[in-house]
Design a protein around this nucleic acid. Structure first.
Lengths: 392, 392
DNA sequence: CTTCTTTTATTGACAGCGGAAAAGAACCCA
DNA sequence: TGGGTTCTTTTCCGCTGTCAATAAAAGAAG
């Protein structure tokens, strides 16, 4: 039973108003003249865009000002009132559903996990709907409406259509997930690829704020990459981009399930690391945590595996940097737990692979609590909400 | 002595008008309603944009219509009058300057070459100015003003500033080429990286017309790559992108001047091929043409070298496709002369490397007469001319 | 040969967006 | 209390692109 009226329109009818809001959302409290400067608008335009946003409660005057650096009338900063609207983000993995309730600033208010027993669309839909309903119930306590639901799934996702075209982990083909979840939850649903969702979260709320060209590389069960070029997340002509996992690092390397040898994913993803550690050390580790522990305990064979993984990741990032010239590459993912083991190799291999000015690219690591994937999904919902009324 | 008044403004003051013109420029003769459909504008807006363009002579009614498929008032197509304006494109290589005079549709009218004896900016500037002056004299015979000069240089070029920041072949650092040539020729000068210039030419006048995401890969003395994402040529945060030449294909491969081993350029660029053929066959070939002839005569060692080059190029293109998901990759460059020797390997290696939907990407070859590099330069000038008055 | 239908192009009225300039507001400092 | 300074709002205005109505140019139908 949906608890909130989804009919409320976001009062940013014009591109400029939408841009003003996003500017404030990303860059914290800003005075009106700062907004104009950053968004390239006149002060008058800012005033006209800000007023309805304040009246609707999405922006508030930031009373907690402190800096009074100079002469003249004091500036009057505004900020986004995160509590004005809520969103739900859901990440569906092969064996778990993670759901978070966030506010408009994409801060997590509540998080829930649920193990996944069956992977067919019907079962997943039931569980996901259940989880969303729980969060909707929680949302009542915050006194703000839930304005959207974002869903992140790995694989080939058509965001515009809301369809999961192909998901290897779930073995789904052409599932109209947005429509289905829209019916069961009554919410406006945005479905996107998981890495792209995380990229949106970084772009608006993370280490990509203010950058028009950056990449996000995730290391974990797989190796993924999200790209932002000219300030927009790249989706590719066929809806798929950022497939860094199957960049071949070494044609003589271990075989990969994709049919090639020596893909990054066949060297540096969790399963590959586990297999390599087992082979090198003879210890029957079964998951990434065990492999990591072995390495942390000082086993040289295990450490060598991580060294090689770092080298592969660094080379892959170098390739990305050479092709795009991003200002920054953000490294994230569960695999970052092993960062101390391969940080040096990543940086060395990147520095060797990056050519010319591409080496100026800034490498930045970001720890990734597992809820973060679901937060990325919420970020896409927030994006859809803000843009929904912007495009005419 | 500049022969043309550069003060004439292009009558496309609004973004919509500029878009209308580019649409007609790229998609041949179009009826007004077709223009509206393609550019997403109302018929009224098209009428209002087209009129001043016709009055100024940049568009003309296309009387040579023939198709009368249906009922109703016959459509009234318009096309760009190429002869209305001329442009000069100059490509500076390490040992030659190529200059072309083109019309507004980027068709080459006159082409000139000049060997380069010295590479210092002063000498190059003198020769280039001389060549431009010759073409300006030629232009008088065509009865149209020369509206811009485009210059293409390999290396790190800041187009906005008109500065060659670093060119390895010329050994230039921070040469304000646009300003210098502007003074000697009196023309409005656009300077850009050579591969990006060629990419612009393909985007507007070649195999990239109508595509919002594609890549151009050039094979020859070096291996280059131009990228178009979301309809815009990618320049990277630091002004450099598309450095495909130093993607590592095989870490056990031949050493590259960049310090790594097994870069595409160290396997498939002309110097690498010549060196490999010499080594494999013992024949003292000194240039690409000789190596090619040896392979064409059936020498197996030489053929193997090309096979390997094709494999490397195909893998590199696969990497590009995986990362961007372009709709098409255009393969061009002088190295295409050997296409029959490695076409199969390129396609096979690409198919193996491309993951999932990236394999749907269309590979298309394009022969590249050497004048084409200069034509790319002219294309950037045309772009600047059209956009000059569009921004504000 | 007139009239209708169909499709294309143009016109004119109109709403909305954003900018320039001027006015207002809020503070500090004499 | 009156400058000086900086931030914000207001007023007005031009410009752009859409809507709806109109004109134009055919073929089809009677």
């Amino acid at each position: 039973m949906p608890s909130s009226p989804p009919t409320e329109a976001f009062p940013a009818h014009t591109p400029a108003a939408s841009q003003v809001f996003v500017t404030v959302l990303c860059h914290g409290p800003l005075t009106r003249s700062d907004i104009g400067g950053r968004a390239g608008l006149s002060a008058a335009a800012v005033t006209k865009a800000v007023r309805p946003l304040i009246e609707a409660g999405y922006l508030v005057e930031d009373v907690g000002e402190e800096t009074r650096p100079s002469l003249g009338r004091p500036a009057n900063p505004v900020r986004v009132d995160g509590g004005r609207a809520l969103f739900i983000g859901v990440k569906i993995t092969g064996d778990e559903i993670i759901a978070v309730l966030t506010d408009l600033c994409c801060r997590i208010r509540v998080a829930r996990h649920l193990p996944l027993t069956a992977r067919d669309p019907g079962a997943v839909l039931t569980l996901a709907s259940e989880l969303v309903r729980e969060l909707l119930a929680e949302a009542d306590g915050f006194g703000a409406p839930v304005h959207g639901l974002g869903v992140a799934v790995s694989g080939d996702v058509d965001r515009a259509a809301g369809v999961v075209r192909y998901s290897p982990f779930l073995e789904w083909h052409d599932v109209p997930l947005a429509e289905l979840l829209g019916m069961t939850t009554g919410l406006k649903v945005t479905v996107d690829n998981d890495v792209r969702a995380l990229t949106v979260a970084e772009q608006w709320f993370g280490a990509g704020v203010g950058l028009s060209d950056f990449a996000l590389v995730t290391v974990g069960a797989g190796i993924g990459c999200g790209l932002v070029v000219h300030g927009r997340v790249v989706s590719g002509a066929h809806g798929v981009a950022g497939e860094i996992g199957h960049v071949v690092i070494d044609p003589a390397g271990p075989p990969c399930h994709c049919g090639n040898r020596g893909c990054v994913e066949a060297i540096a993803a969790d399963p590959a690391i586990v297999a390599a550690v087992r082979e090198r050390t003879g210890v029957a580790v079964t998951d990434a945590a065990a492999a990591l522990e072995l390495a942390h305990r000082g086993d040289q064979g295990a450490r060598d595996v991580y060294t090689r993984a770092g080298d592969a990741i660094g080379r892959a990032i170098g390739t990305v940097a050479n092709l795009f010239g991003p200002e920054r590459v953000i490294i994230s993912g569960e695999g970052l737990a092993a960062y101390d083991l391969f940080a040096e190799q990543i940086r060395d291999a990147f520095a060797a692979a990056a050519f010319g000015t591409a080496a100026q690219c800034d490498l930045k690591t970001r720890p990734l609590p597992f809820d973060e994937w679901a937060r990325g999904a919420a970020a896409t919902a927030i994006q859809s909400f803000i843009r929904s009324e912007a495009r005419h």
